[in-house]
């Protein structure tokens, strides 16, 4: 087990290195510059600005400097948000995205797995059709449609939830939770849909397998067969899906953060890419790659824990 973890960490280093290198050069190859807008800088001033951020040096030198900085935990200054470092932007935005995304994934996992199990047990019954119908809708309707619809209903018409925004630090949880309801719901709906379908498919397959038949033959009660034996096998495909999906959701969604005015990292990421804020884009890419590597590792460990046939060595 330890050897496995060690080996995976060793593989992660070149992977991260390749990601950083590709992102760095792709970003610089994109046309445009962070310092161009309709106000043109005089050549002297532009040279001053470039020198200030070390961008007057050859690209290879900039790359080496950047990688050196990253190794020391320094992601550099933001080129657009002149008062903020990349680390500060990430450390301000990421916790918000993590909270919303984490809640959404937790809810999605609980609801999705439940729906999937119900669907598989009552296969082709009304409960199955209802659950899967909802799931198909959840996948088909994009978040930029569900979000405004929910806002229209719960904020504008019923007036029971805020239209968006983030509670202040001093606000008690008893009123702060209302800000999270709609973003979490919008983010979790498509995930519920995918998770429930994956669970249902896995469950149907496992329920027909020999070990489940054996469990039933032993005379185990139905809930024990389903929850203790079948479910463990059925959610294996789900585990490999959840790793990257969680990484995607907790690093923030542009659409949800924009519509609900959330101070998350997803919006900052897209804005930075459009404004050519190279360092912020790089920082978020590194965060995202690191999360995916980490969560995939977690998924592999979970695999071994759930399925005795998998050996990690």
């Amino acid at each position: 087990m330890l050897r496995f973890l060690f080996r995976r960490l060793l593989i992660a280093i070149p992977t991260m290195f390749i990601v950083v290198t590709l992102a760095f050069f792709m970003m610089r190859a994109a046309p445009g510059s962070p310092f161009v807008n309709e106000r043109h800088l005089s050549p002297e001033v532009e040279a001053n600005v470039m020198a200030k951020y070390g961008m007057n040096r050859p690209l290879a030198v900039q790359y080496a400097t950047y990688v050196g900085g990253v190794l020391h935990g320094d992601l550099g200054p933001s080129l657009k948000y002149k008062d903020k470092t990349v680390l500060k932007i990430i450390s301000e935005g990421f916790p918000h995205s993590l909270l919303i995304g984490g809640l959404a994934m937790t809810i999605a996992a609980i609801v999705g797995v439940s729906l999937g199990v119900v669907g598989a047990l009552r296969q082709n019954g009304p409960a199955d059709y209802t659950a899967m119908g909802v799931a198909v809708l959840g996948v088909c309707i994009p978040t930029f449609v569900t979000a405004p619809l929910l806002v229209l209903l719960f904020a504008s018409m019923l007036g029971v939830l805020p239209t968006g925004g983030w509670p202040t630090a001093s606000q008690p949880l008893s009123s702060a939770w209302r800000y999270f309801v709609m973003p979490v719901a919008v983010l979790s709906l498509p995930q519920i849909a995918i998770i429930s379908r994956l669970t249902r498919a896995g469950m149907i397959e496992v329920l027909r397998s020999n070990y489940v038949r054996t469990a039933r033959a032993k005379g185990l009660p139905e809930h024990s067969v389903v929850l203790r034996h079948a479910l463990r096998g059925a959610i294996l495909p789900l585990v490999s899906y959840l790793g990257p999906a969680t990484a995607g959701v907790i690093t923030g969604s542009l659409v949800v953060e924009r519509i609900f005015s959330l101070p998350g990292i997803g919006r900052a990421f897209v804005a930075s890419a459009l404004q050519r804020d190279y360092t912020v884009v790089m920082g978020v890419v590194i965060l995202y790659a690191g999360l995916i590597l980490f969560l995939n590792l977690v998924a592999d460990v979970l695999y071994a824990a759930l399925d005795p046939r998998v050996r990690l060595s």
Partner: peptide
Amino acid sequence: HPGSDAIAVERAVRRGE
């Protein structure tokens, strides 16, 4: 409050937020 989605901001103004 920053808000680049003009429609979202419009809703917030209507609700007095």
